[in-house]
Design a protein around this nucleic acid. Structure first.
Lengths: 123, 123
DNA sequence: GGGGCTACTTACCAAGAGGTTCGAAATATG
DNA sequence: CATATTTCGAACCTCTTGGTAAGTAGCCCC
């Protein structure tokens, strides 16, 4: 997990930065994108996998479980055959998504300025 | 870097998610905190290191260079002995920080709800 | 009976992010 | 002369993250 180990990062007030917590939740390669896909409503595992071209099933399942454990994603298992699982955002997840939006907008607006920079995949 | 490899993550519109770009810039263990520290004004290397208790000098220098390469941080070297280097935010960096704020607030507001969750360091 | 469907799980592997240690470079101080 | 200061660069190691490939579990269809 990306945000792990931020334990000692404190601001001037002496309390742990809220950012650390956010990164603990959505840090990693796919979690933010996952939140974005989930925002559209209940989605099935296979649907997500097709939307996020490039994720391996292992990592997708892992990340979904972690988001569920963090309380931002709800997992609903239907005991059918073949099995069906639907993922959706919890109220907390919806709030998180709202907080994520400005970052999305910033990246979008400065896409051109950043595209030429090294290490940025804005092709 | 955390956000690397988001190349194939596209939304319904078919364009690359602005989030990918943002993560390319501030992904990683320390970059977001770095931005937070830099927000207070020009800071010297040693000052940052003392604020972010736990960073190794190598990683701090690395991250600062990467933020500089991304255009969100300005690095001013004074040719003195011993050398003095001051870091500050560029206008782009200031904008990024604004976009980062809601995430910080979200983490802060839901600190208690998230503290009990596994893998979250909100002690 | 073989193959497909879904949503995983397990084992293994590679890449890279981060940490540790050492040293450079020039000057001031004891 | 030895030491301290400050900001790193280089070498080396470790641990985590993510990717690959295979297998699992029932039921359906041909």
């Amino acid at each position: 997990m990306v945000g792990r180990g931020f334990v000692d990062a404190r601001g001037d007030a002496g309390q742990i930065c809220g950012m650390s917590i956010a990164i603990d939740v959505v840090g990693g390669k796919w979690k933010m994108h996952l939140m974005w896909v989930l925002a559209e409503g209940p989605v099935r595992f296979g649907q997500i996998r097709r939307k996020l071209d490039g994720v391996s099933e292992k990592v997708l399942a892992e990340n979904l479980r972690q988001l569920e454990a963090s309380g931002v994603v709800h997992r609903e298992l239907y005991a059918e055959v073949p099995p069906r699982v639907e993922y959706s955002l919890t109220p907390l997840g919806v709030e998180l998504n709202k907080a994520l939006a400005p970052l999305e907008i910033w990246g979008d607006q400065n896409r051109d300025a950043l595209a030429s920079r090294p290490g940025i995949s804005a092709s």
